[in-house]
Design a protein around this nucleic acid. Structure first.
Lengths: 334, 334
DNA sequence: TTGTACGCGTTATCAG
DNA sequence: CTGATAACGCGTACAA
């Protein structure tokens, strides 16, 4: 059942049928109703591929993400998909894993599929070496690229992110002010947001004119039990710390398990601050003080900017949201 | 840059270029290399829409899911997307929320986009009233439908699921055998798997010739703190229970919070069994005994069946996997 | 081994 | 208000 069949049944030309389908041009109410009836009777649906060929779009956005099973990413995917759908776009999901080559390959694959834009979910896409971000800039020559929680200044690249640096600086400063100077900063990856969080941590020490032992900065990519072990081994090496500021809630839970293994009282003897305000943080006891990075706002902003761009209108290259600290049981301040 | 441009530059016809692109027909090595070079030089990529129109497929599978931010669903999406991609299919994700009408609408939307098949993630798609499953059967008239963790017997519908009933029956029987008779079965939804789990629970009592008070069966769809409150209120109404068998880990954590609020010793005074073996279960203290429903196998099976069907080969309408109980700190047996 | 010509289903343009 | 016709770009019989 195609547009020719419908036009034949209605005794009109395909042009008229098309006009009725797209509702823009003026058609006499009589023929309009007749065509509508015939369309309904035969439940005719325009062929999406032919439509795509003609319009050069199938209203599809590519979602590129390292690991959609991750607590944080899966929420991002959820919010993004919902916002896109509300704007009549479909989302093609593509998970790359941690590999650089896979990332570039899958991005190309999305472009080959002629998506209208690509959203990069997660700051792991932005590396410290500019050269390694070039594939993103090249992709931006073809379609708009949206980056969630990362920043890259380039034409046709639009970033929506949370001010990780400021909030970690605030959190660390608060710790220092409350007499907790033996801080440990635990983060998972040398990603854009990882680097920003680290900067915030360093800033807090600089602002307080306190020296910062580099052993207090720990880059560690492990599971909850592995994190616990890691901290146990750091402690046994003689490093003393009474507070952990973590780059995500999973690491924070690992720190919590460590504190319990050491029989520390939480939060009086040992404090923990997580990141992402994930569901993990309310599973443990005491519940996790965690930083809420306003993910839903961030996603909605990203899609709003994208829609503007796709509409030929301008959009800010960078939208930065401030984060909040959610105090629960693993700290006694904020 | 289209196939005509390439053919012109190479001094051949578009047919030859097409043959080289698709690698099937026989082309002389000389012209083949020449065309390949020109393609590489101009980095020509066939127009996906035109290709779709000609072949009537764009190698895309629709993923329909109630809520991709859910722990369980997001893992399913991850495994499915990975398996599909390995078979050169892309995944369009579509989250419906809990609404029936939205489900039917979004399914239609996927079909209108001419996906090659649709995978329904989660048993909430299968309702108890057959009439309300008809939209699935109708969709199956157009493309293969795969159901993950649900079962519907119909042509062109293929189901991959875990034997929820058997494992809950085993778990409940083990509890009864260990002298724990004051069981509470807590489940979230009257979905296919919810009903199957409930059956397993009932079976255990029947097998042990024990009476089952219907108050011990609790259908409750709430968050962790809400679940805790719900159990507190049940206890205050006089219902006694020393064991909770939960339909998912979130409910189980709620039960754990309840037990802690009551100052019960876990597991001696109060035992808990979760479901899904999610990350939530290793965040709490003690860690959750949970049922592992082999989600990764389930997803891989689903995709394998789908690939077979798309290849014109037969596939089983139902593939059932047995689950395992993972003993951790909230029980002292298994 | 290679080329020609048509079909796929839609939208857009221009003429009436 | 309506119709005829040309793109859109690719795949593929069929012919050479």
């Amino acid at each position: 059942m195609n547009i020719y069949d419908i036009s034949k049944k209605a005794g009109v030309s395909i042009a008229t049928v098309s006009r009725v389908m797209n509702g823009n041009a003026r058609v006499s109410e009589k023929t309009r109703q007749k065509i509508l009836d015939i369309i309904a009777e035969n439940d005719y649906t325009p062929n999406a591929f032919a439509r795509g060929l003609g319009l050069n779009t199938m209203q599809t956005i590519g979602l590129l993400c390292a690991d959609s099973s991750d607590q944080f990413f899966s929420r991002a995917v959820y919010y993004l998909e919902r916002a896109l759908r509300a704007n009549h776009y479909d989302a093609i999901l593509s998970c790359t894993g941690p590999d650089y080559d896979t990332r570039t390959e899958y991005l190309k694959r999305l472009l080959a599929k002629k998506v209208d834009a690509v959203i990069l979910i997660g700051s792991s896409f932005i590396e410290a070496v500019p050269e390694r971000n070039r594939y993103i800039i090249e992709a931006a020559a073809e379609v708009p690229i949206i980056i969630l929680n990362g920043y890259l200044k380039a034409p046709n690249v639009y970033c929506s992110l949370c001010d990780d640096q400021e909030i970690i600086q605030q959190a660390a400063s608060a710790c220092l002010e409350h007499g907790r100077q033996e801080l440990l900063f635990l983060y998972r990856a040398d990603s854009y947001s990882g680097r920003r969080k680290l900067e915030g941590f360093k800033e807090a020490f600089a602002a307080a004119s306190l020296p910062l032992d580099s052993r207090r900065i720990v880059l560690f990519n492990g599971s909850i039990p592995e994190t616990k072990e890691k901290l146990l081994s750091l402690a046994s090496e003689g490093l003393t710390f009474d507070t952990v500021i973590a780059g995500d809630d999973e690491l924070a839970i690992g720190a919590l398990k460590y504190a319990k293994a050491m029989n520390f009282d939480i939060p009086s003897q040992f404090a923990i601050i997580g990141y992402n305000n994930s569901q993990l943080g309310i599973c443990c006891e005491p519940e996790l003080t965690s930083i809420d990075n306003q993910l839903e706002f961030c996603c909605n902003n990203a899609v709003a900017a994208l829609m503007s761009v796709l509409d030929g209108k301008p959009a800010p290259g960078k939208t930065m949201l401030s984060a909040n600290i959610l105090q629960r049981g693993t700290t006694d301040f904020f």
